[in-house]
Amino acid sequence: MTHPLPTEDDLTEVAEVASAIRASIGSVLSGLDGAITATLATALAGGHLLMEDVPGVGKTTLARAFAASVDCTLGRIQFTPDLMPADVTGVSIFRSDDHRFEFRPGPIFAQVVIADEINRASPKTQSALLEAMQEHAVTVDGVTRRLPEPFLVVATQNPIDMEGTYPLPEAQRDRFMAQVSVGYPQPHDEMAMLDSHDGTDPLAEVRPVTDTATLARLIDVARRIYAAPAVKQHIVDLVSQTRNDSALRLGASPRASLQLLAASKARAAMAGRNHVLPDDVKALAGAVLSHRLVVSTEARLGGRSAHDVVTQIVERTPVPTEARASRMAPVGAVRSEAR
């Protein structure tokens, strides 16, 4: 292995920063531990996040709270049907005083970009964003400009209001590392929210708890987390089952395997562990795999969502053990004949 394992100090730092961000977001939104964990894991794994939920449950607030907790530049794009690619990437304008073109960067030139209601924009504009996500660069007028690092896109999508929307095709959904559903809050969380929003905007009071340089370092630490062969086997088992499940018309891609491993490493790092556990994989499989799958018509009519199918696969797939791997290794020196 070329990368050294993260040291104790590295891991402590990741755990501390992660819990600080978690607390900071928690002061704005209560009761969203699963969504926050997935968000943090995606951020630490260097991926992008898709949030799909009904309006008003805090998708954008979660994204903004995360951005506010990290001392970073924030871009925000409200996607509308008439939004043009140049509105995302930026445009060159002609300066008549010195007779030359000057590039005005679009909102995508930020470390955290919130793309609100991404399914409202035309496919052309969506593609501009998704290309930038993939390449971490933008090309305007033949000049390629790097985007700032770390670069995290949080796109939100509204599944209910389908009139005049352009749902992301499967190939583009695959670009997002994870999809998070915020969901309605529990009654006591909602009570707490009503209290905290009473007269003040808690978002305005969020102060950065870390900076982007630290975040970049943490991403590097997460990358160096150890994943045992048994864990990788577990990921492959899960992903290959999505390709064979009769309830699924489209299974998960190899990119999904890579991203599930990356996200699992990030979750392990957040827990201060230097190695991935199957628990990490199981906790994130739903968020990382579901949005890439296409449920067959029969299963959909039976009321099963992709998330349900992934949950079932996770529940039934045996966790590989070291023992199972070693059984395949031949020739033990000792015969059990001795007695």
């Binding site: 053990t321 070291e322 023992a323 070693s326 059984r327 031949p330 020739v331 033990g332 000792v334 015969r335 059990s336």
Partner: peptide
């Protein structure tokens, strides 16, 4: 025969 030569010896933790 091949299998009996390679008995499954579980590691202590397992």
């Amino acid at each position: 025969r091949r299998r009996s030569l390679a008995p499954v010896i579980l590691p202590p933790a397992e």
